[in-house]
Design a binder for these strands. Structure first.
Lengths: 93, 93
DNA sequence: AATCTATTTAGATAAACTTCTAAATAGATA
DNA sequence: TATCTATTTAGAAGTTTATCTAAATAGATT
């Protein structure tokens, strides 16, 4: 699997905002939803995109579903982006 | 301006492939196009997305348009992604 | 068991995106 | 100036995406 899904998941502003929310820790789908002016169904759709892209993972407790950032995939994307960065030929000096 | 446009530009596989091509240096729109099984019009559309996102910039010589990677914007995206990374609270130890 | 709460799934719709063909622009050359 | 080459713009068509409403699932509580 490649970066395609991950970058596509990052391309949506609602999903980016969800990720920023999750920086402060685990949250349930409902809590996340309350931060947006959208139906729970729509939030659920975005969460499934993020989960599919492995940017978050979920865990269940009672009838709640908790979402949490999966830091390691961010590292991978950063690594991929690095190839285009300014200091790519630093060692050629 | 935010990361929205840039991340949206990165979300398309053709555009990512164009960026990889450009790693080896400046290329004309035509040269880029020859690497894909698509019309010049379509390539032009993708190049305009990349330019708009400031991931590349263009320069003109004769009737050619050259495209080139703009490394600095990659740095910005990397910086934004870093907030979600593993070592975010390194200094709390 | 019946009902309540949290979340997801299905189906529909409107908007956005990718691609094409045909035409337009612009510089280079005969 | 007429024409050739390189690229972009305009308009159309098909596909994908984001959103909604309504219904389904699943665990918790009465």
């Amino acid at each position: 699997m490649g970066y395609g899904e991950t970058l596509k998941a990052l391309a949506d502003p609602v999903r980016r905002e969800i990720l920023v929310l999750l920086k402060s820790g685990k949250m349930t789908a409902g809590e996340i939803g309350r931060h947006f002016n959208m139906t729970g169904a729509t939030i659920s759709y975005h969460l499934s995109m993020l989960k599919n892209a492995e940017l978050v993972f979920e865990s269940k407790y009672k009838n709640f579903v908790y979402y949490e950032i999966n830091a390691s995939v961010f590292e991978e994307i950063i690594l991929w982006l690095t190839q285009f960065g300014e200091n790519k030929n630093e060692n050629e000096k």
